[in-house]
């Protein structure tokens, strides 16, 4: 069996360009492992939402704060965690963006997309760390 995991463990500044570099590396790896385009799209979207949440909302783009990213990828599974240095949040308090009264509000949509495209999404600690995973389906 040659399915050794590909792992990325990095600490990045709170700037979106560093997040995009991570996304590019992950999507390149997914493609090299022949994950399907819809699955790459879903992982791309969930990871990007997690990174943007960490950089923009968690660390509030402050240059003295960093984001810790850990990705483990195999032929059959994606696992990732994104940890910021913000004060966290209560995911239960985030409005459900799919409720009729919230559809046009601009909060909670990223979390909803992460939950949709991942098999599991967990906010741990004070909410400043998100862990997510997805099994290959195609």
């Amino acid at each position: 069996m040659t399915d050794a995991p590909w792992e990325l463990d990095v600490i990045i500044p709170s700037e979106s360009e560093y997040g995009f570099q991570i996304i590019r590396q992950v999507t390149d790896q997914l493609a090299s492992l022949a994950w399907s385009e819809p699955e790459v799209f879903g992982i791309h979207l969930a990871l990007e939402e997690a990174l943007i949440n960490a950089i923009k909302h968690g660390n509030e783009c402050q240059s003295n704060k960093t984001v810790h990213v850990n990705i483990v990828l195999t032929h059959d599974e994606f696992r990732g965690s994104v940890t910021d240095q913000g004060s966290g949040f209560d995911p239960e308090a985030v409005p459900d963006p799919t409720c009729e009264n919230n559809v046009c509000r601009d909060c909670g949509r990223g979390i909803a997309l992460m939950r949709e495209f991942m098999d599991e999404v967990r906010f741990v600690g004070c909410g400043n760390r998100v862990e997510m995973s997805r099994q290959r389906r195609q």
Partner: peptide, 16 residues
């Protein structure tokens, strides 16, 4: 594209 359309569907923005 289907994937982009899915994003609108998941978030119910195809109602908006």
């Amino acid at each position: 594209e289907p994937e982009v359309q899915e994003v609108f569907g998941i978030t119910r923005l195809n109602d908006v």
